[in-house]
Design a protein around this nucleic acid. Structure first.
Lengths: 203, 203
DNA sequence: TTGAAATAATGAACACTGTTCAGTAAATTT
DNA sequence: AAATTTACTGAACAGTGTTCATTATTTCAA
């Protein structure tokens, strides 16, 4: 039954076509402009066609989010290289924040906007697993070597992540007033915060 | 000229009517359901009328945001009472996170969603000033008494704020997986993070 | 008091959005 | 070649923010 396989393949190709269009739209125009109608127009199909491949917009965005997390994983694989766990933890923090600041639209979809978290129930969201496990594994190692001032790996992981996420998302959403950062630029200020934080958690 | 004053008063009353409707809508239904049309229906006016009092939706939401910050200020005035600066800093952290967790829709408007930050240019956003100054004042005092492990008050303020914001916003946006927090509930986990953080920054 | 000017409010429209569904066109199977 | 399954779409529904010509009301001057 070669036809069934071809059909299957074509179905996947169409899904790829859709999320490729969606992702490039996301990167170029951001979330607001990425509408079903715009995606449909880009791939030269009717809007209704997209609903033959995705149940709704959230399900589609979930796949785009998966791609976004894939990009984060790529960056992590490239930059998180240190053998020493604390050194690696520092690399994780800096790389994570770097990624967020330099990919605001992707970060938005991954961690800030509501969509596509309505599409999935809590225990089936696996998009962030790889990066999260990297962090948890790292802090666990740090703890066993007594290199960080935390008692529990989960508390440590959530705390560190929250710190990074806070810096990124306040910046992306323009909630950091000029007064607060003084004359230096925002990225420099964020780096200072990371520097201080790394010193704080170091044992 | 009593008429001019009455007109002025009536104009303000109408604006109040609009944001009152908007704020109750925000609290009951959240950002998504708070549309110009719904607000108009609630106050029994035409949608177009709202545009006689507000330039656009963002300008309206800016006023709602102002009210939300007012509520935060109220809570701060009630809960931030300690004379000792470090004790007060701890109160600020706990109160801030408590407010965010218990007023997710308001917090959303204040710090997470894009709107209404497009309505205002960077240097004219004064909605968060009071709370921010409370934080900056407090860390400055902590620093002068050498009670926290920071060197710069601005870095300290942004760091502490980011930590709190990270915890709240990751929670509100359902990005914290069950695995990460184990068997305890999320609020307890968040409290543990604050506890550890307070210890971290304590000198 | 009456007519003119200024103010206030609205209905209807525009250009969007996500989504559904009946109907058509194409491919596959019988 | 006919019947059936699959793929696709146009048009519609209900919603969004926003604008504007038109209408109703109020204020002011003669």
């Amino acid at each position: 039954m070669g036809i069934t396989e071809r059909k299957e393949r074509e179905k996947q190709e169409m899904r790829d076509k859709i999320i490729d269009a969606a992702i490039s739209m996301f990167l170029e125009e951001g979330y607001e402009k990425t509408s079903i109608r715009n995606i449909a127009e880009k791939i030269e199909y009717s809007p209704a066609t997209i609903y033959l491949y995705y149940k709704d917009k959230d399900e589609l965005l979930y796949d785009v989010q998966k791609q976004a997390f894939g990009k984060l994983d790529d960056v992590f694989r490239e930059k998180i290289t240190a053998a020493d766990p604390f050194e690696r933890l520092e690399q994780i923090c800096r790389t994570y924040v770097w990624f967020g600041i330099n990919n605001p639209e992707l970060y938005d979809l991954m961690f800030i906007i509501k969509a596509p978290m309505n599409a999935i129930d809590d225990n089936e969201w696996h998009n962030g697993d790889q990066a999260l496990n990297a962090l948890i594994g790292c802090v666990t190692e740090c703890l066993s070597k007594q290199e960080i001032r935390f008692s529990d790996p989960r508390v440590a992981a959530l705390s560190i992540w929250s710190m990074g996420h806070g810096l990124i998302s306040l910046n992306i959403r323009c909630r950091i007033k000029e007064e607060l950062i003084g004359n230096i630029d925002k990225e420099e200020m964020i780096n200072k915060c990371i520097n201080e934080y790394v010193q704080l958690i170091k044992k």
